[in-house]
Amino acid sequence: MKEVFLPGNLEELWRALEREPAPRPYCGGTDLLVHLRSGKTDPDALVCLERIPELSGVREEEGGLWIGAATTHARLLDDPLVRARLPLLARALSTLGSPPVRNMGTIGGNICTASPAGDTLPPLYALDGEVELRSRDSSRRMPLRRFITGPGETALRPDEILAGVRVTPDGTYNVHHFEKIGIRRAMACSIASLAALLRVSSSGEIEAARLAWGSVGPTVVVSGEAEQALLGKRLTRDVLEDAAERARKAVSPIDDVRASAAYRREVSGNLLLRLMEHRPL
């Protein structure tokens, strides 16, 4: 039998985490319980973060949004602030899992699982999200891009938990594009995804570009080369083909049961061509 702690506030959480061996934190359980079942993970004890008010909710802070790690995907999707200010994240969330999974799974879980296929990660990379890590005695911040160190690996210390993620959207981006390729149209693990933020001038010139790909590398892939290839250009087929070719060079996908590396590489580039649809009329 595993002990499972259900702290109702941070103080109870810190006490639970002081136990030996430390219980493994989880929240929605949508990944953890699958791994417990398969034997991929088998901790002696668990601590569930779903009841800690300090870890939940969305608020405006420092000109951006602070999102509690224990906030479910469904709550985020319903949140007017998220919808208005983070449409890129909202789009990605709407493709994540299925409605019951979104009612359970949380953004903190998606980040800490650190799967290259985590659907919230490409938009959070493109948005330069920053994580807030807390322990009983400390609090620190770190860019998400640095927090995730490898597939399933993060910079989280054993006494720490992810408290929240802070995103400061740049309101000048006027193209918010997310596309995910899954085998089916819902409840599908990402084969490849692209999150793109563009600032396109009224004359059609790309003034700024942020691109991030999911499922095509050990962690989310960003490509300055591909972004660079767009700057000062228009959303034409040739320009996007050029960026696509750079993207295909930047990614390092693997073969798995869902798709081959070659397919992932190909579509990593192809997904950029969809940006043509955002050409100003």
């Binding site: 929605g28 319980l33 668990l46 019951p100 359970m104």
Partner: peptide, 23 residues
């Protein structure tokens, strides 16, 4: 958590009974 057959309403929201612990 893939099939939804174990769905239970928890505080009115559909959740999956196979991915929730008793506590």
């Amino acid at each position: 958590g893939e099939c939804g057959a174990c769905t239970v309403l928890v505080d009115g929201e559909p959740r999956l009974g196979c991915l929730m612990l008793a506590v």
